[in-house]
Design a binder for these strands. Structure first.
Lengths: 211, 211
DNA sequence: TGTTAAGCGGAGGGTGCCTCCGTATCTTCC
DNA sequence: GGAAGATACGGAGGCACCCTCCGCTTAACA
């Protein structure tokens, strides 16, 4: 798009490498320890000095933001891949399930992201837009195939998804969320005329709660 | 209910006083500085030593929780008072507006509360229950007076309220939220047959954005 | 009024934040 | 290939905050 035609040198190789390392380490550390995690721990894990970390990401928020962007992009790419799956409804379902897993494994990350989203609304806009597009592309395909009702917007779907993940601190939340998602996707489905409402085939209906 | 009949001394007067002071100070400091605010600042503002603060509230979360409980109770009491107002619809509206103000003035507090709610679900249950009851009592009165539709539950109303405050980081959010609330309350109203929809009388429609 | 335990304050050791600057390394130009 | 200069690196150091610990103070009770 806009390559800087200023006579700026291209960035040094080690700088690029270090930036990458820090991002990788930050993702791991924040996932485990939440948004409060020590930046010095991040630097150590990345194998760089604390000064280097601060040069690349002057504030904690900058670092969050960078990690966040990357995660969102990754989710979007998954949607891209799923677009070539055979069954469009299943593709959508799989994507949403990945979203749950994303929330589950990131744990601390989620709180961090919430923080990041609070502080900068530009980032919020970016990610919402990105996820909406990803959802939309999967949704459209299912609708085009005549397998889903057409009156649900990607935004609605996203909101529903976030709503279902809202309980992500309760004990058995993950299986609950997955079950809700299944029900929801079933509801999105164009009902076959034969059965007014096909039973949702709840697999693992056990309300297994661990601690 | 259960006064301790054990032969325990009654708590010392200074202990009670100090606990109160710390709570007061914490409310102020967290409101201004958010959940990260220094506990030492809280102690200083309360005019007690840091050790005293930690004795009363061993962890940061304990302190949050105590402040939170008290705030929720205060909101509930406001509802109690409003129940004796003449116009039941107006009472409900006023209560909701107070909720917006609550969110607005507390600013940092809100993030803190979110944290507190995350960590302990018992607290969450308590506060949700409390607020639901408060909302319900106001809602019921309006419905009983024949001025509001009867098919909205207090929970729904609360959820809608939280949804409208969700944007509480955007610049002009407060006037937006108040406007949304007005519209919503109008919508709850039993429509008089004469006018199909009374205009919502948007006062201050300026989208004043500061910063 | 004396006894006693509950409560108080703040010093201090530990950790993390962030800045600053001498040193090391990469890029560019010859 | 080598010199020059820009760019990036690392980590010491000053500061703020966290939380514990313990000698001193003071309220409750007899």
């Amino acid at each position: 798009m806009d390559d800087q035609t200023d006579q700026t040198r291209k960035p040094r190789a080690d700088a690029i490498r270090n930036r990458e390392r820090v991002l990788e380490a930050a993702k791991a550390v924040f996932s485990a320890g939440g948004p409060e995690a020590s930046l010095e721990a991040v630097a150590k894990r990345a194998g760089v000095g604390i000064g280097t970390l601060y040069r690349h990401f002057p504030t904690r928020e900058d670092l969050f933001e960078a990690v966040y962007r990357r995660e969102v992009e990754q989710l979007s790419e998954l949607a891209e891949q799923l677009k070539s799956a055979k069954d469009p409804v299943d593709a959508l379902r799989r994507w949403l399930r990945s979203g749950v897993e994303f929330v589950a494994t990131k744990k601390g990350m989620v709180a961090a992201l919430a923080l990041a989203v609070q502080s900068g609304s530009e980032l919020h806009a970016f990610s919402f837009d990105r996820l909406t597009k990803a959802t939309g592309s999967l949704l459209d395909r299912a609708v085009a195939a005549g397998e889903m009702r057409a009156d649900i917007s990607p935004e609605d779907l996203l909101r529903a998804f976030f709503g279902m993940c809202y309980i992500h601190d309760q004990p058995g939340w993950q299986s609950t969320a997955l079950r809700l998602l299944d029900v929801f996707v079933d509801g999105l489905r164009v009902q076959p005329k034969s059965s007014p409402r096909g039973p949702a085939k709840t697999k693992s209906r056990a309300t297994k709660r661990k601690r």
